[in-house]
Design a protein around this nucleic acid. Structure first.
Ligand SMILES: [Mn+2]
Ligand SMILES: [Mn+2]
Ligand SMILES: [Mn+2]
Ligand SMILES: [Mn+2]
Lengths: 218, 218
DNA sequence: AAATATTTTTAAGCTTGTCTAAAAATATTG
DNA sequence: CAATATTTTTAGACAAGCTTAAAAATATTT
């Protein structure tokens, strides 16, 4: 059985791997987990000995077959719990991550599957991130960043790239939440900001940074 | 913030206190937590220094005001989660304790209250144990052990004294679950066993040991 | 290619929570 | 009430997971 710390490392390596293709390096793990590089090296040696990862000193690390399975299960649990917290308990999407960070470590295969049943096997979590199925497979769907939506076109918000509390709260304040329809009215070359109209009729201007962190479908 | 280990000690001292009135002694804690007396002494010193308990070496220990509040919260969480697992996820009462043992350590006051709302503020858990309210108050209700139900009288099962898996499974097998009506048909002096008839019409004989561990109301 | 900068690992040490064995305190019994 | 039994504490050790500081390896510049 893995400790919570060990589980966090595996999940971290998984998410960093998604972005890089290459081996994950010590420093990026340390940054992500807000710990020292020395601690990371220490843990990598332990996880390597137990064959959850393939570790090449000074080169970097990737998950083993076994480690990959565990990481996917953790992400499944995390996102199922986030869905539960929003859909059943009425939390908003900026409140659920920290609680799910704890709940993902509850050990019971039975629990996960019953929870998934109870929730009708959702495919996406409250932030629009895919929930792996029992076998660890992610759903994929066509999505583009709002920055890439041409002027005059409509899109529906289906996810976010950033998950920080600040960003999610900004989105709440501007009613930019999952399911909302957006039409791009104007593009301002000067600072790459966008004027948009929501389904509700409200019009706003959003920065390039914001538009880049919102995913929409056509 | 308390570690899971520290929380387990406080909860343990609380439940042992319920039974004894007197100070809780080191050995009984060690037995309950399946650990060594030396470890217990060690922890008692730490919890005492932080004023969660009042500890008198060689004499015993009791919870401080503060420790009592925390223990009650843990029991509230534990039993709410057990209720959730049975009522919403369809677990049976012999499957929920170990999972609730983990879930009770999730840190979020908001979560507990939203969960309680979602469950309509249940007063008793799947084993018939009272769920403390937000202020830590337990509901009390009149209940007697099935052994004490006179021959010819009817009662309804509302709880159990023992919580072991073996006992709960025995009860499942004999359809002796919460809400079931029981009529005592006969008492056998020789071994203090009872002949009973269930609401369903089934008749069985149960031992004195079993009858002592079932609570009924008239 | 040598000098410099960055990344990673090693070394040493701390806290938490556990253990076993031995010593000390308390309780029980003849 | 002294001997014995039981309970509790102390002592010493260990693993996990973290820290900082120093050393070693690798990457980048000049
Ligand atoms: Mn999350
Ligand atoms: Mn999410
Ligand atoms: Mn329980
Ligand atoms: Mn219970």
């Amino acid at each position: 059985m893995l400790s919570q710390a060990e589980e966090n490392y595996l999940k971290c390596i998984f998410t960093l791997s998604e972005k890089t293709e290459k081996l994950v390096n010590t420093n990026s793990i340390a940054r992500a987990l807000d710990t020292s590089a020395a601690s990371v090296t220490d843990m990598l040696k332990r996880l390597s000995k137990r064959e959850y990862i393939e570790y090449r000193p000074y080169k970097g690390v990737k998950l083993s077959e076994q480690g990959d399975v565990i990481a996917r299960k953790l992400i499944r649990k995390h996102r199922l719990w986030e869905f539960f917290l929003c859909e059943k308990l009425g939390f908003s999407w900026d409140e659920v991550h920290d609680i799910a960070e704890q709940l993902e470590h509850i050990q019971s295969d039975d629990l996960v599957e019953r929870l998934a049943d109870f929730l009708d096997h959702p495919k996406f979590d409250p932030h629009g991130d895919p929930i792996p199925d029992k076998e660890g497979r992610f759903s994929v769907r066509k999505q583009i960043a709002l920055v890439d939506l041409p002027v005059g076109k409509k899109g529906i918000i289906i996810g976010v790239r950033e998950h920080s509390n600040d960003f999610l709260k900004y989105l709440n304040q501007h009613r930019l939440t999952i399911g909302v329809t957006i039409k791009v009215l104007e593009y301002f070359e000067y600072d790459q900001s966008l004027k948009i109209r929501l389904g509700s009729g409200t019009e706003t201007v959003i920065s390039q940074k914001v538009a880049n962190n919102i995913f929409v479908k056509n």
